[in-house]
Design a protein around this nucleic acid. Structure first.
Length: 706
RNA sequence: GCCGAAGUGGCGAAAUGGCAGACGCAGCUGACUCAAAAUCAGCCGGGGCUUACACCCCGUGUCGGUUCGACUCCGACCUUCGGCACCA
């Protein structure tokens, strides 16, 4: 209602997308390849209907420009939104009808510079002036053409392989720039829903116009040439900028300069005006579905559309008396007790709107409720929302790039304009995660997991057998988060095995008394070489996992791999300390094991929360029964312990690896160089040839160039 | 057609311009077991050579370039995937 009162929600009759399967209309964003997003097999048809729209186009510029503020969004999502919004800068030009000087046809063009090359003008079949301007001689063929094209579905129009069809309507227009008189045609390659539904035809400089003119033998007049000289007969349209020719006083200018001057000229001569056109259309939100939020408006024959008074909000979806017939259409429209209502303004008989709102309405602002979840009177208050918003880190699938993510941005901007909140954008950082895919028996291909494709994995069964932690670890481990992920039972079982390894390790060490939750951190000077290696491995793991989990990286897959390495290291250490069945450890070794295990659990806890919590308690770290590992501090590492004293120096000749030697860390360059040059393998490679250069990368490699 | 992303073992993948294949799956071998499962330990890019240890060559979609050195940077191409598509 707030949007309605602000003029951002309106009702209008328009050709809309209709899914015969859902028996409802759909938004443009919900039509994929000419089919319904819920029913890929069902072709969407066009229907003329009165429907509710939200004025998302009023925010087209802001939605486009503010994409630049979204530094934390993946570029591909921003590009998809830019394309969807589709900003085109150009001008409206007015062409006067020759026989009716008071009637003007306005076209939108981005190429004013080509206007001297206009050889015809085309109207969309749905253009309101088509019938008015059709002459008697042409009436029959035009009516036939209109009838044909109205029978085409959107999909057929797309599938028509772009073969140009059309008929002349008999009238002519005058080119405001040069007085040329050119014929008007009607053709369905021009869309009523974009621009003005009328296009100036410039065959020499537009691919579609060229095809159209070639098909119907219309003149091709070159007005921009790469050289400034006429090119003779054109075999294909010239689309690039160039030098103006055949264009009166604009001749000789570059087309880019001419474009600006010509728009100015049109404006001065009342023949046009600069304009920006968007591809984005207003958001059709009416649905003839039962499951949805009722649209809180009342239709009164006297007063027109009247909002449901505030004290009667929200309008709840009725449950009593609803009949699901399976015949389609909304059951609400058949429920008299819901429809019949007296008009809040005049008290007369009126009826409720029976359409419900698109599901995407709800997802466009649900997150605001999280800022103020216990408010009984309002959905949210401004100060709470201003405190929490924007969302620091949003996560969602790419499939929402131009649906949810665009709508939510629009809602935030609209609510901001209404003064209900202050932020410009809802989500500062967006992690666009890949979809989960799996082989689909329905299609015989690997597809995104969904009920309709019959490739869903029952989580309950999987959790019962292997646990939620295993499923969670697998989805994190199988690929980086923004990449697609193919579900694999074997892979998930691998994670189950990994968790089993941890469980046995920790519970066994605990049973043997090797874990002490109160132990102080181990002193590296007091453990043996094996112990030192484990201590270093632990510190390295803390460092690496901390970096991997940082929002700048989100490398969950590598973070888990690090934890696996630490577990492998722990197993190795334990086996080296075990003789027969007996594991005996010194106090220092107990400290070491306690330290290593404690940190392993802390590092893994975000990714395998249940088992880590369980082991946290088992190892005595929870002082109170309700203590949680998830409230414990994130582990810290000591950088000095992540650095090895000895490194392996790679020795190369001409960039090819010849040998590897262990060397003390921090070896000076000349020492490293002589170490390499004295190496026997390097010597035999050099074999008397002259050494031109030696490149030393400290603590990494030496490359001898011969 | 336009825009974008990606091509690395049998598979999922890893690698601030510096040891390609970490980690895991599958596979193979051994230990344990009457046996199997589970578990534990080991092997595991391709080719050549060797009794063996070793050693040699090739290898990150293709072709070029930059560089002492390229999976990584640059150019062209090929393929796959995703988005948009008669948008004037």
């Amino acid at each position: 209602l707030q949007l309605y009162r602000a003029g951002l929600a309106y009702r209008k009759g328009a050709p809309v997308n209709w899914c015969p399967d859902c028996q409802t209309v759909l938004a443009n964003e919900q039509v994929e390849n000419g089919a319904c997003w819920r029913h890929p097999e069902t072709t969407v048809v066009q229907r003329q209907m009165e429907q509710w729209f939200l004025k998302i186009t009023a925010f087209a510029d802001a939605l486009l420009e503010d994409l630049d503020l979204l530094q934390g969004w993946p570029e591909r999502v921003k590009i998809m939104q830019r394309n969807w919004i589709g900003r085109s800068q150009g001008a409206d030009l007015h062409f006067t009808v020759e026989s009716k000087p008071n009637v003007k046809i306005t076209v939108f063009t981005t190429r004013v510079d080509t206007v001297f090359g206009v050889s015809y003008l085309v109207l969309a079949p749905e253009h309101p002036l088509v019938r008015e301007l059709t002459t008697d001689e042409c009436r029959e063929s035009v009516e036939k053409y209109l009838e044909q094209s109205s029978r085409k579905t959107e999909l057929e129009r797309q599938m028509a392989e772009k073969v140009k069809t059309g008929v002349p309507i008999g009238s002519h227009v005058v080119n405001p720039f040069n007085g040329d008189i050119v014929p008007i045609w009607v053709s369905d390659y021009v869309l009523m829903s974009y621009g003005t539904g009328a296009v100036m035809g410039v065959p020499a400089h537009d691919q579609r116009d060229f095809e159209f003119a070639t098909t119907f033998g219309l003149p091709v007049k070159e007005v921009i040439s790469p050289t400034g000289q006429p090119s003779g007969e054109l075999k294909e349209p010239y689309l690039d900028p160039g030098i103006m020719i055949n264009s009166g006083s604009f001749n000789g200018l570059t087309s880019e300069v001419a474009k600006k001057k010509m728009i100015d000229w049109a404006a001065e001569n009342q023949s046009g005006a600069p304009r920006v056109q968007y591809r984005l259309r207003d958001w059709l939100i009416s649905r003839q579905r039962y499951w949805g939020c009722p649209i809180p408006l009342i239709h009164c024959s006297q007063c027109g559309v009247v909002p449901v008074p505030d004290d009667q909000l929200p309008v709840r979806l009725p449950v009593e008396g609803i009949e699901i017939t399976g015949e389609g259409g909304s059951p609400l429209a058949r429920l008299k007790s819901f429809i019949e209502i007296s008009c809040p303004q005049c008290g007369g008989q009126a009826s409720r709107e029976t359409d419900t709102m698109d599901t995407f309405i709800d997802s466009s602002w649900y997150f605001l409720r999280y800022a103020d979840p216990h408010n009984e009177k309002l959905p949210f208050t401004k100060d709470r929302v201003n405190y929490w918003m924007p969302v620091d880190q949003y996560v969602g699938g790419v499939e929402h790039a131009i649906l949810h993510l665009l709508y939510a941005r629009f809602f935030t901007k609209a609510l901001s304009r209404l003064g209900l909140l202050d932020c410009k954008e809802p989500f500062s950082n967006l992690l666009s995660q890949g979809m989960v895919t799996k082989f689909s028996p329905t299609s015989g291909r690997i597809e995104k997991m969904s009920k309709s494709r019959g490739n869903v994995v029952g989580t309950t069964d999987f959790f019962k057998r292997y646990g939620a932690d295993a499923a969670r670890l697998f989805t994190l481990f199988a690929s980086p988060p923004e990449q697609e992920l193919e579900w694999s039972e074997e892979g998930a079982i691998g994670q189950y095995r990994f968790l089993g390894r941890i469980w046995r390790l920790v519970s066994d060490l605990t049973a043997r008394g090797c874990i002490d939750a109160d132990a102080v951190d181990p002193d590296p000077a007091l453990v043996d070489a094996t112990g030192k290696a484990l201590l270093k491995l632990t510190h390295k793991t803390i460092k690496a996992v901390s970096q991997d989990l940082d929002p700048s990286c989100y490398g969950f897959n590598t973070a888990i791999a690090r934890c696996m390495e630490l577990v492998n290291g722990l197993y190795k250490y334990v086996s080296e300390k075990t003789t027969g069945d007996a594991l005996t450890v010194t106090e220092h070794e107990r400290q070491l094991l306690s330290f290593s295990i404690r940190n392993l659990l802390l590092l893994l806890a975000p990714m395998a929360p249940h088992i880590c919590e369980e082991l946290w308690h088992l190892t005595g770290h929870a002082r109170q029964p309700d203590d949680s590992i998830h409230r414990a501090a994130w582990p810290a590492y000591i950088d000095a312990f992540t650095i090895d004293d000895e490194i392996e120096l790679v020795l190369q000749v001409n960039g090819k690896i010849v040998s590897k030697v262990t060397a003390p860390r921090g070896l000076a360059q000349p020492d490293a160089q002589s170490l390499a040059l004295n190496d026997a393998k390097i010597q035999s490679k050099i074999n008397g040839q002259s050494v031109r250069k030696v490149i030393v990368v400290p603590d990494k490699l030496v490359n001898v160039v011969i």
